[in-house]
Computed example of a mutant assay.
Amino acid sequence: MLSACGGPSEREYALPETLCGVGVDQALYDPLLPPGDELETPWLFENHGPFTMHQCLLLVDGEEAVRAFTSSDMDFEKTISREDLGVDLNDAVERDGAYEVRVWPGVAMARMECHANQLVSVTLTVEAPYPEDDEESVRVLSDLIEPFMDATMQLIPCEEFEEEAGE
């Protein structure tokens, strides 16, 4: 049932023990989940087995709260275009770390080179419209993306890319 006042002001559902079925500190994804009555998880990474492509969807009161997926795109621009993410690569906040990371309000992406099923790259994308404040969203997603990528890569039979001499 829809509420004329815009819905609950507090979170009535329990915070999930994992994010998309992978172990990430709850404090990192807690801010992504808005107030509401019911959390549904129709897709979790763990449901897909040890493959390179994974999808996750968290719904709060039937509305998309978090969507995350992995892809084999070699660069961020392909994922941005294919998934119609509504962000411009030139506006991204770049993060230093173990992965190539780009963050915008509501979207974060991490990429690493690897060998898995004849692929040479895995990109993790997270979309989350909450928190609504742009600066807070970038901060929360920046803090989350690398640990989430670490946990996600445990599901993917991926070896770190090593350039061979003569290539």
Rank of each mutant, 00 (worst) to 15 (best):
A128P: 05
L39K: 00
G97P: 05
G7L: 06
E132H: 02
L141G: 08
V138M: 09
A14Y: 02
A4Q: 07
T152K: 04
A27K: 12
E164D: 09
T79R: 04
E10W: 05
D96Y: 05
L2R: 06
L15P: 01
S121G: 05
E160M: 07
V140K: 02
K78H: 03
P8F: 11
E17R: 13
S81A: 13
S81F: 07
P42T: 12
D96C: 01
C114P: 03
P16K: 06
P147A: 04
L33C: 10
M74E: 14
E77N: 00
Q154I: 00
I156E: 11
L155I: 05
P34N: 02
G106Q: 13
S142R: 01
P16A: 04
S137Y: 08
L89F: 02
G166V: 03
E164N: 00
A65N: 05
R139I: 11
Y130A: 11
V122H: 01
F76N: 01
G97T: 03
V22F: 10
S72I: 09
R102D: 00
G6F: 06
E167W: 08
R67L: 09
G6M: 06
D143E: 15
A14F: 09
A4R: 04
C20K: 10
E163I: 07
F51Y: 07
D25L: 00
S3A: 14
D37S: 09
F69S: 08
V140T: 15
T79Q: 10
E163C: 06
P157R: 01
D134W: 00
E83Q: 13
D91E: 15
E46D: 14
E83D: 07
P34K: 06
T70W: 05
A151K: 07
P50S: 11
C158L: 00
V120Y: 12
H48K: 03
P105Q: 13
G21Y: 05
I156K: 08
E38I: 06
D91G: 14
D61E: 05
E146V: 08
P8W: 08
T18W: 11
E83L: 02
M109V: 09
L57Y: 06
V120K: 03
Q55A: 07
L58V: 11
C5V: 13
V140P: 09
T125D: 06
W43A: 15
P16D: 11
L39R: 02
E64D: 11
P34E: 03
E160H: 12
V22Y: 08
P129K: 15
D73Q: 04
T152E: 05
I80W: 01
P16Q: 04
A4H: 06
D84R: 12
L39Q: 02
Q55Y: 13
P131F: 10
G23H: 10
F161N: 10
H54L: 15
C5S: 11
P105C: 14
A151I: 08
E83A: 11
L33W: 12
P50M: 05
P42A: 09
I80F: 07
L59Q: 12
D88R: 14
T41M: 14
S71L: 01
G23T: 09
E136H: 02
T52G: 02
R95L: 15
D134N: 10
A14D: 12
A165N: 02
T125I: 12
V101G: 00
M149V: 04
V60E: 12
